[in-house]
Nucleic acid binder design. Structure first.
Lengths: 177, 177, 177, 177
DNA sequence: GATGAATGAGAGTTCATTCAT
DNA sequence: CATGAATGAACTCTCATTCAT
């Protein structure tokens, strides 16, 4: 039995009563995981006022997300479809896209707030900054997750310590001064 | 016919004249791509003296690498095997690992040279810096490659322009001052 | 489609719902045939008191076994695995071995009973006698089965007549006087 | 490279210059091994006068034959084709058959000589006796070869000791008195 | 003549999907 | 509704055979 059937409580065959095919099921699971990610980000912004504080919560949230949904984390860096004219999109894909946009919105809020209160560089171009920032965060976390053993062996650091170092490096790329 | 046979111009059966099994084929292709990547990095350091100049060539090299070997680019962030006690490694896997170490060496040279001549922060911890830097670079390039269309549509930037912005962001995380 | 799938009435893929792999399928079929052989031997001993009577039923049982399971009959003369330290044996292989041991036990009973009541030579060394006797029986039956047409043509005997002659020859090798 | 090519000194492809297909090659090899077997038997009869002495040499020859050509030994008990009307027979198969007949002839000589000089039972029916005797011999040797390790472990006998016991058992089935 | 290079056909195996009940 | 039973299509790998040189 495939992964998705094993954890659903239903038999393989039953899934095909409710879902067209594997793609749809994955789409739904991805959507769910994206919503969770959104919550992590949103709550990070809600819980903290300071940009640094928010930043740290965002990082922590992403790490947790990777640990909870390694499979979906991988996907977050993969192809997004935007051609919604195309007949072939599942409603879930559309919604996943929209949740992604909401995450972008939150990140935009995070950056603009930081720029306004002087904690972040005031010359950031919002959209490119968001996306590149996002790519860098994902890249670090992915690498740390995949090479945890190597990192431990080669530099004597836990994944957490290693990433803390990376997060503070990354912060410099957006911080003021 | 499987993917690797279709793209080779040979029949399925012919591949097994030259290679033991799929694992070996993948191993050889991965090794080849790693060597190419090493050349890009090494030539970047050889061609330029300044840290900024080297940095730009490294970035350009990685982008080209991703364009040439999208499949192997993915792998570069995935698990490294270090347990060489294990009998079961192919010679190619071992060599791939060693080429990876040589790439690390080059990046270390890059960072230390930059730190010595004052272009880079003098408080960088070499190993964690290299790996996090590497993860960030890969993350940006991966995201840019996978979402090129989205980036064009959402912010009116070509992949190149988008990445140039990202590369200059990332440089701040290691640059002096 | 492979042999074992063709003769089962199921598609290739279906077999893998019920069995792990080909080895297991063969193992189960062999075990089944060994149990049948055991029954033939056991019932031969139960049905008759006299050694000669038992002998004839054993021979008849083996002939029937060859006719029912020609493929497994071949195997009965091939390698036995005794190294049960080895992790890699299927449970079926172990059980097949044990059924083989039970058959040996029955043959031992047959011989010792015959020696005690004077119908068989009293100087038989049980174990070598059992195994050589067994090999001779199998050899005759195998040859008769494979060369039935030749036997008919060359000596005008049916397989049954031919084997009856052979069985009475063989009996002399163990009979008293 | 298959077995037959490895030992021939020619490359795989070259074999197909000289032979139609694998079947033909096997046919030729089988023929060769049959001739060798004939020589063993013929020389056994030539070397010894006494039936017992001849018998022992025949047994010894067959054991050597099994050790030299285990692959062809297997075949000796398998189907013989006699329907030479059929178009599909290779000349080698025909010749192999004829060598088989010559072996039968030799065995007939062995038996009749033994019957005449009183060493063997005088009531043997030659043809059925030859073939059953042959099947029994093959069966014992096959079993001893395939279960050598088991025999060693279960009864502490070498293959040679085990077979000597079997050969003397078998002799009783044809010996006078 | 001899062969290196190539392959069609088939084996064992997996996986997403269907269908009768 | 739910599912056990079944499978087509694809994958990795082998083997007897062919063919251009």
């Amino acid at each position: 039995m495939p992964h998705f059937a094993l954890t659903s409580g239903y038999s393989k065959a039953t899934l095909y009563v409710y879902f067209e095919n594997k793609e749809e099921i994955v789409g739904i699971l991805v959507l769910g995981s994206m919503k969770k990610l959104y919550e992590y980000i949103a709550s990070a912004l809600a819980q903290q006022e300071s940009t640094k504080g928010r930043y740290e919560l965002i990082c922590r949230g992403l790490v947790r997300y990777q640990e909870e949904f390694p499979f979906y984390f991988d996907m977050a860096l993969s192809k997004i479809n935007i051609d919604f004219e195309n007949r072939d999109y599942l409603p879930e894909e559309k919604e996943t896209y929209l949740v992604g946009e909401e995450i972008n919105e939150k990140l935009r809020d995070f950056l603009t707030a930081g720029m306004e209160n002087g904690e972040l560089r005031d010359d950031l171009e919002i959209m490119p900054a968001i996306f590149n920032f996002w790519g860098m965060l994902f890249g670090m976390i992915q690498l740390a997750a995949n090479k945890e053993a190597y990192i431990e062996k080669a530099m004597g650091l836990s994944k957490g310590q290693f990433l803390d170092y990376g997060f503070s490096m990354l912060y410099r790329s957006i911080a003021a001064k």
